[in-house]
Design a binder for these strands. Structure first.
Lengths: 205, 205
DNA sequence: ATCTGAAGACATCAACTGATGACATCGCGC
DNA sequence: GCGCGATGTCATCAGTTGATGTCTTCAGAT
């Protein structure tokens, strides 16, 4: 949450020091970073529609007008958010326990990014949702499908999508507040259960 | 879509005839029914926020002002929607294949109700979400937990929530448009995969 | 036939949202 | 030290939304 999101732009890695020679207080790169971070939290937390630019600005400590200035608008800010989320993680095979643990721990610290919502939520084909869905496919579905295909499993794409959807549902539910024990469970105790569940997307042998 | 929603109120099953003695054309009960039905579709289809009362009225062929008159507002209409969804189905044990088939087919015809979204989506503790979550627990989590408890499985509640979350994710994803093959799959071919997946919420023996 | 109350349609309000443009202020290069 | 562009602030606009109040219209009882 307080951690800097790498990727995106090389500027502004941690707190302050965008460039070796420019510790300027009045820092556009820093404002952009603050906006993206606040937006990522809020979008993940309340969805795209329910998040207002004023809220984002308030949480970021930055004037909302700068959203328009730096990103072009709320939508583009969202896209930048997804791009960051996309940039700082690697495609993961959900059936590999180490990868799964990594994802689980990451989503336990800061909640799932906005992508998961957009993927699972019905909606029009806005570029917003499209970007988020592309992300999900690259990250989760394709690795799984490739694995299934390599294993000569039938319907690899369908199985991969099934597992990814289940995973998204669980991750979202965990941070939604709808399921008490699921939300309270530690990643370590959840991991084996989750792994077994997802592994069942492969035909039982 | 054009199909009548069973349950709800005994009035207005198909076209016109709310009460034996009152085939009045100017029918408040019918207007209510039309509003609920339109709202159910739209809420499930675009979420609560993105659905406007004007849209609901337009689809129902009823003046939007009547939403306020009959339900008190958009929120109460949503609650009525959830109540209907709750009323016309029975608690289902997701591991029982017949129950699962029933749910799957039902959600394949008309999409999932608004409850699934509200349950899986993070958000404030509005009564809207609370009602939806209560629904999900009564319907899906509790039957599963009872089964697990009877089977002496450890952590029955956690396992039940896990399975329910996965199920919700899959159902939502199916109608979201994010996953092509998952959405296109026939219930019959999806059923065995889904069953195996959910069955893995029980410890492998 | 008429009267009355329910049912529906219309106009409109107040609140909110995203976006824009004008203005102030700071920092860097000269 | 100073001017100019970059950065940030403020006020405000236009569009939309949910909600309300009032007026019209119809059905049923008398």
């Amino acid at each position: 949450m307080t951690e800097a999101a790498p990727g995106t732009d090389p500027t502004t890695p941690g707190g302050d020091r965008p460039e070796p020679g420019a510790p300027r207080r009045r820092d556009a790169a820093r404002s952009r970073e603050l906006l993206i971070r606040a937006a990522m939290e809020l979008f993940a937390d309340r969805g795209f529609e329910r998040t207002t630019t004023r809220e984002i600005g308030e949480r970021a400590g930055v004037d909302p007008a700068l959203i328009a200035r730096y990103f072009g608008g709320k939508t583009q800010l969202y896209l930048a958010t997804v791009r960051v989320e996309l940039g700082d993680s690697v495609p993961a095979d959900l059936l590999e326990e180490d990868r799964l643990r990594g994802l689980l721990e990451r989503f336990s610290q800061r909640g799932p990014g906005p992508s998961f919502q957009a993927a699972v939520l019905p909606g029009d084909r806005t570029e917003v949702q499209q970007a988020a869905r592309t992300y999900l496919h690259e990250r989760l579905v394709e690795p799984l499908r490739d694995r299934f295909a390599a294993e000569q499993v039938d319907r690899p794409q369908l199985r991969a999508e099934l597992a990814a959807a289940a995973f998204a549902g669980i991750i979202l539910a965990r941070s939604s507040g709808a399921f008490g024990e699921l939300a309270a469970a530690e990643p370590e105790e959840l991991l084996p259960l989750l792994h077994d569940l997802l592994a069942a997307s492969r035909p039982t042998r």
